[in-house]
Design a protein around this nucleic acid. Sequence first.
DNA 1: TGCGAATTATATCACTCTGACATATATCGA
DNA 2: TCGATATATGTCAGAGTGATATAATTCGCA
Lengths: 178, 178
Amino acid sequence: MDIRTLCLGILTMGDATGYEIKKFFEERLSHFYEASFGSIYPALGKMTDDGWVRCSAQAQDGRPDKKVYTITPSGRMAFLDALGKDPRKDRIRSEFLAMMMFSDLMSTARVSSLIDTRIADLQSKLDEMDACAADATTPVDQFILGFGQAVYRAEMNYLQDNRHLVEAQALMSGRAAE
Amino acid sequence: MDIRTLCLGILTMGDATGYEIKKFFEERLSHFYEASFGSIYPALGKMTDDGWVRCSAQAQDGRPDKKVYTITPSGRMAFLDALGKDPRKDRIRSEFLAMMMFSDLMSTARVSSLIDTRIADLQSKLDEMDACAADATTPVDQFILGFGQAVYRAEMNYLQDNRHLVEAQALMSGRAAE
DNA sequence: TGCGAATTATATCACTCTGACATATATCGA
DNA sequence: TCGATATATGTCAGAGTGATATAATTCGCA
């Protein structure tokens, strides 16, 4: 399930422009999938060439043409086919945890500040999601949103309960490297 | 904190070859950071050019030379400098959740199978981590490991408690696309 | 009414990183 | 003995990011 295929899936839910697909990624998928314009626009171009989507350019005063993409029957088949393939394992990159590995090379103040920021970020994402909860009318949307909330809450609780493990570490900074 | 910098950090803990660094990623960081040979070897080469690491090649019978890398004082400074920069937000790609968005286009059996596999994968990772727990002697290692366990447990509990939200969905497959 | 910021909209590009492949040999279990 | 796994380094096509470019509109605020 690369970005190309996921864009195709989004188009099964209705016509959209590249810009609208980007907004969808940001507003609905941001807690488990991200995509930049640099991958969305080329993906739409490629799929147009492959006959999976059709593009109708709508001229607009001054602005660039608005290109509305529609999925074709062959694109729909390609997407159903993709749903038959098993998902690859999650790809995750947490620079925060990577830095925590080296908490004994940082001051306690620095470590605390990083954790405070992390907790604040998690809280603001949770607040955002709470606000979205009313919009999640279908069970599927609730499932997706709830998954993100469960994970973020677990992270936040863990940090609050265990931050002492890395904050205390700097006090032992005399240890020799092994 | 790109892969280059993280390799440098790993070398602050002791000399290592590219192969050993890869093993470290797999055994210790796999739940929050991944790196392939295709990024590790070029990273070591680049850092050698920059004077951040030194390389001592050790001839071996038959096999390619074993190249042991050592961090230099200037490399150590560069790493401490990197720890002063704020981490970027986590990058996450979950093809599993992406597919769940389209559970109404799959059969209930398919959805159930995907969730069963996901739960089994989470369980095997948790088992693996439980086995590692004895090796995590420092508070920092415990913090890192515990974080992963907390997140995986939260995911598993969520799936067990809420899978009905996506498994029931297929029963309503008569709905028209909006 | 006027000004800056945000939004709408498409696109390119250098760079990073992945995942598959190539190349060897040794060692371990069945 | 034979296949799988481990040791060990490396390349490369292709995917994707993040910054940048361009340009008009609309919104909030003073």
